[in-house]
Design a protein around this nucleic acid. Structure first.
Length: 837
RNA sequence: GCCCUUGUGGCGGAAUGGUAGACGCAACGGACUUAAAAUCCGUUGGUUUGAACAAAGCCGUGCCAGUUCGAGUCUGGCCAAGGGCACCA
């Protein structure tokens, strides 16, 4: 017997798989297709055990589905544009491209392949290569043509560390998502946006179609989209007969209680609406508000501030003059950028009115009475002080008031979303250039499709990190001719958010080498949607929302035929470990100083053991704490499998055997082993299915089978024919069941067992239903629901017999003495519960 | 503040409303060995009675109620931890 040497066999089989191309996905194959996808990584340079998890989960699924007879697409690529490469360039004076390429080579060959993953590398995509970003740019042009990409001047989030603007989704608690210590600043800038809000309703509604998504992810998206139903009311302005201020409200029922209006400091009409004598104060206020960081503006207990503009509006319901104010508690890009102030029934308005002594008019009451309010009354109630609407419930009032406003031309029903348009320009070099040219005579002109790609200039670029994007100084590149009038013009220097690249990579995999189009429609419609997507919860909104939006927009452009890109989603939990820096268990990451590298462990114990541990230690959605001790435990399990195999081969001339045993097995211990083997096939198959994905219990069941086999063979050196069959059956099927989890050791043992290649091309086993039937059961006897005794009896006895048997047990009799028997509940073959008084 | 999720041994975690703690880690004991490591076989929730390595009892799934013959599992309330949103009108 040789020793189990993972290092040797793992590299041997990795080479064999590559040479024989057994993981190739075939376009339009006869077998049913299965698209298994894992979120492609950013090539940061070094994967650690924390990264292993997602690839392992996805690989187990891919390998299992192949054995089940699917034509599996399991691709891999790199999300290769982005800031770290550029920052590395600034620090180390290398080019971002070289840095990125070096990292990709290392991750691909030294890490992903060594883990035993089964990717079809022929379909690799690298988003920073021009044969990929050409299509990123082409898609941008489609968005532009369809008026979904547009420019606007807007208050944007600026990260001083990234030196660029960020999308809303990329700001967390007022901090940059990449720098949780860096406050995002607010700036007014002219920027490129994608009109994701046009799809808000569909993005929300189609969440219901995503039966295979975790509820929490759908809920997060729902909250992010943030639909509110209400009304828009328009207010005339005293002295400006042709102007109106529209406001959005969810409480039109409180219209009679409006005592003022507030507009955002950035509101476009603000200077027009400001009286000369208020001008200085208002301008000063606007300036101050503009300088606040997001966190200061949103601070929870921040006292309300604001100044009056001096002009008045008319409340169309009461015909009263109400003052117009500006305050930073109103944000420009939600609703209409203006709100109606109803202090009696809104906490924020109440606070504002108290501070500035504005009138408070109660119009909703729980009991119909008016009283002095100490705080805003925000609950439901009856309408009062509301003219002809008095006495209505406020819910009815919402409808009646809006209808009334519509009739009088000062309002309508309206729905608003919290979702904002996606800001996609970035003031950085290492991204796909936005294919647009600025011409003094023609204005904004799109680069024509046959001029693509707009290549990133690579020569003579200096990375200093100062003075904005290096593209601003690449004069040969920057200065160009206008596509329409041929006069001198300048290129757009902003590049695209890298989330654009990752919003369609899963489509490109279907046709990765196509140099004529982004993808052939037929191929995309064949492979997509993705059957199983695996990735981290951190993309619950970001990448997953953007990709859903892309799919819907591309469908509307006629490029594909489906509504949702990812049918099933598995959000795996993070890998944690004790961090000495934080003094607690934390997500494994370089910055927290708690990473465990892959190479050392692979060298000593093998990728198979690492894969098993990471799957075994907890269910996939939960966190898992890395423990090298625990992983060694799985290495020991593999050694046990290895030794068991050679022990049996020496003593029983083990052979490939996967037929069911038809004759009745007499020997009870052997019969039980056969039952356990079949039970293992059943449960592992269930645990690995998409309804469960409980790889931890699947591995536990296989461990139990191995333990049972050890118990069976202990002290035995010779075996009869039927024993040889049962043992061969158990080993043959164990190797197949274990193959997706531990692909190398099973391949090696399979070759030794069968002399053939490959275990990964075997059919997934089925189990012998008859073997699972036992003729004895454990009957539990309870008194008042508490376990008293357990009897082993024949299966299928009548209820009455079980009851008599239970009542005759000594331990039962002892306890029933002097008590009154109320009733006996019998669950056949399971339990007898005796109820006493 | 609003919404969601999770609370089970020393630890990670198992349990279609029916024997709580599968499987693994750690710990301990035995066999093998000159010895150690490795391996194989066991023990391991707490507690009480008992001379006992015999045997038996009681308690136990965050806390308090409820439904049920029976609750880790279902319902309501509370506590704690984690996550999402947040001056969104």
């Amino acid at each position: 017997m040789t020793n189990y040497s993972p290092k040797e066999i793992e590299s041997k089989w990795q080479a064999a798989w590559e040479n024989t191309q057994i993981h190739k996905a075939i376009d339009f194959d006869n077998k049913p297709k299965y698209y298994s996808l894992v979120m492609f990584p950013y090539p940061s340079g070094d994967l650690h055990m924390g990264h292993m998890r997602v690839y392992t989960i996805s690989d187990v699924i891919s390998r299992h589905r192949r054995m089940c007879g699917f034509n599996v697409l399991n691709p891999m690529g790199f999300d290769a544009f982005g800031l770290p490469a550029e920052n590395a360039a600034i620090e180390r004076k290398t080019h971002p491209k070289q840095w990125t390429q070096k990292n990709i080579d290392y991750m691909k060959n030294q890490q992903l392949k060594r883990m035993g993953t089964s990717y079809d590398w022929d379909r690799e995509v690298v988003s920073c290569n021009s044969d990929y970003y050409k299509w990123t740019q082409w898609l941008f042009l489609q968005f532009y043509k369809n008026k979904i990409a547009y420019q606007k001047e807007a208050p944007v989030n600026w990260c001083p560390k990234c030196q660029t603007v960020l999308a809303n989704e990329q700001v967390e608690d007022g901090m940059c998502w990449r720098h949780d210590d860096t406050l995002v600043e607010r700036k007014m800038m002219r920027q490129w946006f994608l009109k994701i809000t046009q799809y808000a309703e569909e993005l929300l509604n189609d969440l219901d179609k995503l039966q295979g998504w975790p509820e929490r992810v759908k809920l997060m998206q729902k909250n992010w989209i943030g639909k509110s139903v209400g009304a828009e009311l328009a207010f005339s302005i005293v002295g400006h007969e042709n102007l109106k201020i529209p406001v959005f409200t969810t409480r039109p029922d409180t219209a009679f209680g409006i005592t003022y209006l507030v507009v955002a400091p950035e509101y476009s009409l603000i200077s027009k609406l400001t009286l000369p004598e208020n001008k200085d104060k208002v301008e000063e206020y606007i300036k101050k508000a503009g300088h606040l960081t997001e966190i200061e503006r949103l601070a929870e207990n921040k006292e309300k501030t604001g100044v009056p503009l001096g002009t008045f509006a008319i409340n169309p319901f009461t015909n009263e003059k109400i003052p117009i104010w500006t305050s930073d508690y109103v944000v420009l890009d939600y609703g209409t950028g203006a709100v109606m102030g109803v202090p009696a029934h809104d906490e924020r308005d109440f606070e504002f009115a108290k501070k500035f002594n504005l009138p408070i008019q109660q119009v909703i009451s729980p009991d119909g009475l008016t009283r002095n309010l100490d705080e805003a009354f925000t609950a439901s109630g009856i309408m009062i002080n509301s003219g002809s609407f008095n006495g209505l419930s406020n819910e009815e009032g919402k409808i009646k008031i809006t209808e009334h406003a519509a009739k009088n031309n000062c309002g309508s029903f309206r729905v608003t979303y919290r979702l904002r348009d996606w800001l996609i320009s970035r003031q950085r070099y290492w991204g796909a250039p936005i294919p647009v040219i600025y011409c003094d005579s023609c204005g904004v002109v799109a680069v024509s499709e046959n001029e693509l790609p707009v290549l990133l200039p690579e020569e003579d670029i200096e990375f200093t990190g100062l003075g904005g994007s290096p593209l601003l100084r690449a004069s040969d590149w920057l200065n160009t001719k206008c596509p329409s009038c041929k006069k001198n013009a300048k290129r757009e220097t902003d590049t695209m958010d890298t989330f654009i690249c990752s919003s369609y990579y899963y489509l490109r995999y279907a046709d990765a080498k196509n140099n004529k189009e982004a993808f052939e429609k037929k191929k995309v419609n064949y492979w997509l949607p993705v059957d199983q997507y695996v990735g981290g919860i951190e993309h619950a909104i970001l990448h997953l929302l953007y990709s859903r939006f892309f799919t819907k927009a591309l469908r509307d452009f006629g490029l594909l035929n489906f509504d949702e890109p990812f049918t099933n989603l598995l959000s795996q939990g993070m890998v944690t470990m004790f961090s000495p820096k934080e003094g607690k268990i934390a997500k494994m990451s370089k910055s927290k100083g708690n990473v465990v590298g892959t190479s050392e462990f692979f060298d000593q114990y093998g990728a198979d053991a690492a894969r098993l541990f990471i799957l075994f230690a907890s269910p996939p959605e939960q966190e898992v704490e890395w423990s090298t001790q625990g992983a060694i435990g799985q290495y020991r399990f593999l050694e046990r499998v290895w030794r068991l195999f050679f022990n049996l081969r020496e003593n029983t001339s083990l052979f490939l055997f996967d037929k069911f045993i038809e004759i009745n097995i007499e020997e009870p211990v052997l019969k039980d082993l056969y039952r356990v083997a079949n039970y293992t096939i059943k449960t592992v198959s269930e645990d690995i299915s998409k309804e469960k994905y409980t790889f931890n219990t699947a591995i536990a069941r296989m461990t139990e089978l191995v333990n049972s086999m050890y118990k069976f063979i202990i002290g035995k050196t010779s075996y009869n024919d039927i024993e040889k069959q049962v043992l061969s059956f158990s080993i043959t099927n164990l190797l197949k069941l274990l193959a997706p989890f531990a692909p190398h050791i099973t391949e090696e043992l399979w070759e030794r067992l069968s002399g053939s290649y490959s275990v990964h091309q075997q059919k997934w086993p089925t189990y012998d239903e008859a073997a699972l039937i036992t003729d004895e059961i454990q009957l539990v006897i309870q008194i008042g629901g508490k376990k008293i005794d357990v009897l082993t009896t024949k299966k299928g006895l009548p209820q009455k017999d079980l009851e008599i048997m239970a009542l005759n047990q000594e331990r039962v009799k002892l306890r029933l003495d002097g008590k009154e028997l109320v009733k006996v509940v019998v669950v056949p073959d399971k339990i007898v519960n005796i109820v006493v008084k």
